[in-house]
């Protein structure tokens, strides 16, 4: 006799599978966002390098003509500083998703083993023979 609990469990979708999908999508969004930010950063760097090094190095906060260049340099340096950790955050999200789905594989293997344990004696007619 197949229990109602086993029938219910083999028919349900594991909740952790949805969590794995969520982590995968989060990771993808983070990395795609970092790519877009990287493009914007590249454009800003190209813009900055239209100025000679002497102009870039001489930029000062109290000079209205070069204040923008200094600000741009600061933004580029700051963005570069957090962009790499952001990419690894996305990678981490992916790896967490893969770990979760591997755990679901283990659960599914256990469930299939349980299903075999219950079903095979019935299918092969072993249950009746051992009862006799």
């Amino acid at each position: 006799m197949v229990s109602a609990d086993l029938k219910r469990r083999v028919n349900e979708t594991p909740r952790l599978k949805r969590l794995a999908y969520g982590l995968m999508i989060t990771g993808f969004i983070i990395i795609a966002a970092s790519f877009v930010i990287g493009i914007a950063l590249g454009l800003s760097i190209a813009d900055l390098f239209e100025n000679a090094k002497s102009v870039r190095d001489a930029a000062a906060p109290d000079d209205a003509a070069t204040r923008g260049i200094l600000s741009q340099q600061g933004t580029i340096a700051a963005t570069t500083a957090w962009l790499t950790p952001l990419k690894f955050l996305g990678l981490g999200s992916f790896l967490a998703g893969i770990t979760t789905i591997l755990y679901v594989v283990i659960q599914s293997l256990k469930l299939r083993a349980e299903s075999m344990k219950v079903s095979l004696p019935i299918i092969l007619g072993v249950e009746e023979k051992s009862a006799e």
């Binding site: 197949v2 086993l6 029938k7 083999v10 028919n11 979708t13 594991p14 594989v105 599914s108 293997l109 469930l111 299939r112 349980e114 299903s115 075999m116 219950v118 079903s119 095979l120 019935i122 299918i123």
Partner: peptide, 12 residues
């Protein structure tokens, strides 16, 4: 894997 588990129960 889940399909195989379900199929076994169905056959039983």
């Amino acid at each position: 894997l889940r399909f195989q588990a379900r199929r076994l129960v169905e056959i039983a």
